[in-house]
Amino acid sequence: MRAMAVAVLALVLAAVLTLTVGVREGGFSLVWQALSAFDPNDPAHIAIQSVRMPRLIAGLIAGAALGMAGTIMQAITRNPLADPGILGINAGAAFAVVIGSLIAGRADNGLMAALAFPGAAAAAVAVFALGGGLKGDAGPVRLTLAGVALSAMLLSFVSAIILARNEALEVFRFWVTGSLAQAGMRPLGYMAIAAVFGACLAIAIAPRIEALSLGSALARGLGTKPGRIQLGALVAVTALTGAAVGVAGPVAFLGLLVPRLARRAGGHVLRRELIASAILGAAILLFADTIGRIVIPPTEIRVGTMTALIGAPMFIWMARRLRAGASA
């Protein structure tokens, strides 16, 4: 419980920092005024309401969604390296978005968001089929490499398109890395609904996923239907990842970082882990975003780059620790 309290505190702190860091003068009190007594004539207030708040909300949605998606994926694949980014689900969403807006000839947010879900779902199915996940136990190495290969292929297509059209490069080269900037232009409301749906589904089926993570034979002995659980998990992961990609672009590695920490806060009870993942995911994403904004001013390091810079060493550390038997 103490760890959970720490997580909540961290989230609050991250949210406050997101709102206040970089505000020129007035700092916290100005932000407080803008929120409590909004003055539509004060440009500083408008800036906070129209730039900082959307950024905070986008960070909350994307961070919580990716954290939970990572936890579900790690539980169901028993793979400590599972993450929507590494397994190519982000790339699937990105691919669908880029192809779709190319065909439609426009890149508005509604369209991008609507395409992200089918893209994520297709990539998730593909990576599990290719990685042997449907047959039963997919080893971490196989699933990871299948994800890497799938990502490489989809991102090759994406970069072919981006390079073919210079105007597309301008739109997507920022988006493809993952960023919370210009979040005000994103369909935050719809994505929030999708994320909440995914979160509820995940929490509902969490005990079944726990049973499945003991192996499919024992899971059936415990009265669950593995196929149905996998389907439910797939829907949840798709809704969560799609929502995150919709508001922040394909941010990778958050789903890798968060579950390990969430386990500290939630023990081995998946529902608690999921809630802890949501809190920690949002907190880490907001922290990463804030650090990215202030570390080398005036340039901003995209939040996707930040998570990768933290997450890739984590990946290496975990790869080293993989038990010899677990690599099968």
Binding site: S213, G215, A217, L218, R220, G221, G223, K225, G267, H268
Partner: peptide, 22 residues
């Protein structure tokens, strides 16, 4: 499925526990 699982339990051979579980 669930009704059966309330009446009959099976422990398969050599099950693998999730890492670190208590």
């Amino acid at each position: 499925t669930r009704a059966l699982a309330r009446r009959l339990a099976i422990l398969p051979q050599a099950s693998k526990a999730p890492e670190g579980i208590t």
